[in-house]
Simulated scan of single mutants.
Amino acid sequence: MSEDLGYGWQGDLVDLPAYLERVGHDGDVAPTVATLCALHRAHTTSIPFENLEIMLGRPVDLALDAIQAKLVGRPRGGYCFEHTRLFAAVLERLGYEVIALAGRVTLGARKILPSTHALLHVRPPGQPLDEPAWLCDVGFGSGPLEPLRFRDGEEVDQDGWGFRLQQGRTVNAWSPNTVGWELHQRGPDGWVQRHTFAMNETFRVDFELYNYFISTSPNSPFTTRPFVQKFTRDALYVLDGTNESVTYPDGSVKQYSHSVDDLPEVLAKDFGIVLDDADVLRLADFMRTHQKES
């Protein structure tokens, strides 16, 4: 057995039939643009975004077998590093050229945040280099439904949800004119920048570093309360602590407030996440302890 140097995504270890069943894809798996779009849509609308493992007192394990057991084998989800790690392995298994990138979230940020979002630069095999590659972003929790072409300023409408990928300038003291990219999403008041990223390859070991900060730091947005999302073609469901919002493609929003005891039912009904009895108790303990401290 050859030594694993950490360059690839271990596509040979993917349980492809189980993954395809989990996301509900029973179509072609030839590594084409059409397949890429179909898998991206299937993954995004089937596996929710969630950070509950942190609330449950367990580390977020990025080993592929652990991610498959959680996101594929159980009615659970994960956050960007888990989603992107899994999707990269699936695409590699199918024959795509996959390069990971690290993004800096700007949506709702009042200051510069660390680069802690994972994305993928993907090409079908044999695609000419003068044709644009595809940006896959299955781990943000709120779309896009399908990949975006690396074509500066191109706007896409996906079942009423609007996205735009455009070039921008990255912060780089050594090369101040370095061109990066920005992903924008359409909101009720127009286009909003969601995150920025440079075209620097990121590896599995980098995911481990980012994941440690996101899952353990008191400065991480994901260590203080549950944050769960489920994206469909018709609505975006978001649970932030005990507050839930449902946003529709036209920008309208419905909001709900839940009790701690309501959360297991809400997670199952609106997000497809089912916790066992022990985890229900752990989540309630975390929430009540945190409410006393805040």
Rank of each mutant, 00 (worst) to 15 (best):
D4F: 10
D4N: 14
W9K: 09
P17A: 06
L20E: 11
G27F: 11
P31E: 13
V33Q: 09
H40Y: 08
A42V: 02
A42H: 07
P48V: 02
L52V: 06
M55N: 10
M55L: 15
G57N: 10
R58N: 07
P59W: 05
V60I: 14
L64W: 06
R74P: 13
E82W: 00
H83D: 03
A88F: 04
V90L: 07
G95S: 13
Y96M: 11
V105M: 03
R110C: 01
K111A: 00
I112H: 00
H117Q: 12
H121I: 00
P128V: 01
P132T: 14
G153W: 10
L165G: 05
T170N: 01
S175N: 15
T178Q: 14
T178W: 02
L183H: 02
L183T: 04
W191Q: 04
V192K: 03
T196H: 00
A198V: 00
T202P: 02
E208L: 15
F213P: 02
P218L: 05
P218A: 05
S220V: 01
F222C: 03
V228R: 07
Q229C: 06
T232W: 03
L239K: 03
D240K: 04
G241H: 09
Y248Q: 09
P249A: 11
D262R: 06
D262T: 11
P264W: 12
V266P: 12
L267S: 08
I273L: 06
V274Q: 11
D276K: 13
A278G: 12
K292H: 07
E293R: 10
